[in-house]
Design a protein around this nucleic acid. Structure first.
Lengths: 226, 226
DNA sequence: CAATTGACTCGTATGCTGTACGATGAGATG
DNA sequence: CATCTCATCGTACAGCATACGAGTCAATTG
């Protein structure tokens, strides 16, 4: 990722400077924190190298000392947001379903707090925090007795469910203002799409419930495989 | 979408022109076809309004007569690619599982032929072809006896599985060249991520099998809900 | 026939974007 | 003092979407 920056930690220069700098020196940590802030506040399109540098009180090109390109910033911001505090203790040890549910709901909640993360995840590098979560998930399933031959399919299916549910919600969670318009637009299509219309597929906003029900489908399916 | 273009179909001008035009006149159909071509050939980043116009032998700004903005082009290209020929006949009528499997595998195959479509789908408008597929899916499930209260969750879960599996495959299907590098990179992480390493989660390239197995999980879960 | 209208095309210009390159300076080391 | 490395940043460039207005024609109208 960052190429030029020397191997890990070095003594920081105290940086008195002639024109006195009122900002602390740049660092990967500061850059990533500012990037997350901008992404949260303005979305993916709102993060540009210029705005990022402005926010840090630095010149645009100074960023490129610490980072190879904008992709690095996105990779780092994404993985930073997906830090996992570690497997929870208060869960009943033998209850694999509860463990999976807790892991995935925590995961989903984290991504919903940073809606850009779901859309960013495919196509970006898998950082250590993401791998860590996959590892934990695989471990739970494996210990629960899922056969090795089924393990990858199980992991990916659960992963897809979390990603998909998060992305879907971000895409279709109409703001209250748009809601009336969406309602009307869909009503006009009622004749062509009667089932969708009747089930209010695109208007139902119980995303948490939908996520949970789908997860239960998968877990029920898994339960027959042990 | 297209704003200025008058209400639907009008007589086309034969367009002889003084400096003889060797290209047919622009039309939404030509624009969409060219956009799909560029997307297939160069990916999302390869589609720019300039290149699209060049390919059509037209000036860049001419496109904006037929289309409001680039988003329109993407919406139209996406929905064009997801056209559905209609429910297949040769399927056993009563076998809802086979119907769902056929519908979703056809869907997935279509998106894999145009890998950009999966990454584009969230965030873009739901065109008529997409809605049509959702309607068919909902109909099958409803007729199969899925309760209305469960219907939305079932539809979204299956939708997420198709989208997720397609996006996941596009993200992690390393080219043969990268494969050795990826292999080595992951081996180095083997100590930290033993389960992932053992299951070869990121190296397994049986995407079709993974998709099918995950789909069976969901369908098994659904089968208990009727 | 002449004048007008409307459909369509496109050149130019604006303000963004990521980033290549090279100049600049500070602190450490010789 | 001379060099070297770390770090910062101004300028420049190519490419992007698109606003605006001028241009060209065919069909319509008087």
């Amino acid at each position: 990722m960052a190429a030029k920056r020397s191997g890990a930690l070095k003594k920081r220069s105290p940086r008195p400077a002639q024109e006195p700098r009122n900002e602390p020196p740049l660092s990967l940590e500061r850059i990533v924190a500012a990037a997350v802030y901008l992404l949260d506040a303005e979305g993916v399109a709102g993060l540009t190298m210029r705005r990022l540098a402005d926010r840090l009180g630095a010149g645009t090109m100074s960023l490129y000392w610490h980072v190879d390109n904008k992709g690095d910033v996105l990779d780092l911001a994404l993985d930073a947001v997906l830090e996992y505090p570690g497997p929870p203790q208060p869960v009943v040890p033998g209850d694999w379903r509860a463990e999976v549910v807790h892991l995935l709901e925590h995961w989903r909640a984290g991504m919903l707090r940073h809606p850009w993360s779901a859309s960013l995840l495919p196509g970006r590098a898998l950082g250590p925090n993401i791998l860590n979560r996959l590892e934990l998930l695989g471990g739970i399933l494996s210990r629960a007795g899922v056969a090795d031959a089924e393990l990858n399919a199980a992991i990916w299916s659960l992963w897809n469910h979390v990603m998909g549910a998060t992305v879907t919600r971000a895409s279709f969670d109409f703001s209250e203002d748009d809601r009336a318009a969406a309602q009307q637009r869909l009503a006009r299509l009622g004749e062509r799409y009667p089932t969708i219309e009747r089930s209010r597929l695109l208007l139902d906003d119980d995303w948490d419930g939908t996520f949970r029900k789908g997860l239960d489908l998968l877990l029920d399916g898994l339960a027959t495989r042990r």
